[in-house]
Computed example of a mutant assay.
Amino acid sequence: MSVEVTRAAESLAPSPDRQAAGRARHSRPARASGLRSVRGRRARAFYLFAGPWLVGFLALTVYPLGYALWLSFTDSDGLSPRTHFVGLANYKEALTDPDTLHSLARTGVFTAITVPLTIVAGLLLAVLINQPIRARGLFRTLLYLPAVVPPVGAALTFKLIFDRDSGAANGVLDALNMNGVAWLMDPYARWVLIMLTLWGVGNVMIISLAGLQDIPKELHEAARMDGASAWQSFTRITLPLLSPVLFFQVVTGIIAALQSFMPLLIALDPTPHGVTAVPESNYFYMINVFAQYFANGRYGYASALLWILFACILVITFLVFRLSKGMVFYNTAPETATTKPRTLGGKR
């Protein structure tokens, strides 16, 4: 009888496997709740630190963009509380307005001239100061200093230098017994603007210099041992490995040039009468937008102009990315390297 009772008790007692399974079932909810609490703390920390930026992004970027988009479909003058919905009338007018189209063409020409010149000048300066010469740090500092000057200050400085009556440029011409030039009027105003753009080439130089110093020296030494000339090393090694940096400069340079607004500060006549005093060669797209906003009070039309510029920048950037295939090469880790260089947007 006692043996049968013992066997029945053993059959009713949980086995070690059952005990382990039970403990696992009880530990799963605790582990899941622990993971949820960790994730919650991380999410709260993320929103705590990113919250100020998110608020600023929504208030200073998203809302102005949305408000400008709504204005572009109205006849708002910025003062009257009553506005009328005009649909695509502003866009149709912008695409048929000769002043708008000419200003966009001038901006395109300015971009096509200054972006390549800036990149080439910055690369040449970076190659020069990357050489093992004395006082290299001093030269880097001196060449980079103009880029530190605020754009408004640089523009006003150039306006003083090229002033028609008391500028230093005409002072030099007078010392050489030459007639002074109205630098800030047509046809010279455009070249003053280009000189101002090249004067601030220090940013491009520093970025190119960082890219040059990231290239392994062993590659140039191996090429030199194989009998390659300096030009061959530059074109076959330096430029391909520097192509991501140059591509970045092309994209950012195009975007900045298309939005250029500093000509308004340097291209005015010494006795300006508003934006009407801007020389025709420097009457760029953003100056036309400024004139429509503050001189003509056409907020709806000016907002449409800004959205057209945004669309143009978007299309041009997309085309630059598409055209960069096969010309932009990126370094790969040794374990993931392939025989064919990886191109931007392309396949390995």
Rank of each mutant, 00 (worst) to 15 (best):
R136M: 07
E280D: 15
L104S: 10
S166T: 15
I207T: 03
F284Y: 15
Q19H: 11
N282C: 12
D226Q: 03
P341M: 09
A277Q: 08
Q259N: 15
R18P: 05
T107V: 10
T338D: 13
V3E: 15
I161K: 00
N90A: 00
G171N: 01
R322H: 04
A337V: 06
E335W: 12
I266H: 10
W199E: 06
P270T: 02
M178N: 01
P270R: 00
S103I: 06
L176I: 09
F110P: 01
F46G: 05
A59R: 03
Y144C: 00
Y144L: 04
A105K: 13
Q249W: 09
L268K: 05
G40N: 12
E221Q: 14
A277M: 06
N170H: 05
P52L: 08
G78L: 09
S281T: 15
L306H: 11
G253W: 06
G122P: 00
P146N: 13
N130L: 08
H84T: 10
L264A: 10
G78H: 08
A68M: 11
A182S: 09
L58W: 12
S229I: 09
S303M: 00
G297N: 07
R36K: 08
P244Y: 02
N179R: 02
I266C: 00
V148T: 09
I207R: 00
G202F: 07
G87M: 06
I215Q: 01
M178V: 08
V250R: 03
T141I: 13
P16H: 14
A169Q: 07
M185F: 01
L117R: 03
L193K: 03
P150Y: 11
A59P: 07
L65C: 05
P98A: 04
F46H: 13
G211D: 09
L246M: 01
P146L: 03
L123G: 01
T157Y: 13
A126V: 05
M185Y: 05
M286Y: 06
L95A: 05
M225T: 13
A121T: 13
P14Q: 04
Q249K: 03
S303N: 03
L101P: 11
V55P: 00
C312N: 01
V251T: 06
P216V: 03
W70P: 02
T100N: 10
S303E: 07
G202A: 03
I207W: 13
R106S: 02
S37C: 04
G66P: 02
P279L: 02
L173I: 00
L65P: 01
L88I: 14
L323V: 10
S80D: 14
A8N: 11
R18F: 11
R44N: 07
W183K: 01
I215N: 06
A126R: 00
T339A: 10
E10C: 05
L323K: 08
T238M: 00
V3M: 14
T61L: 14
W191P: 01
L319E: 10
Y299T: 07
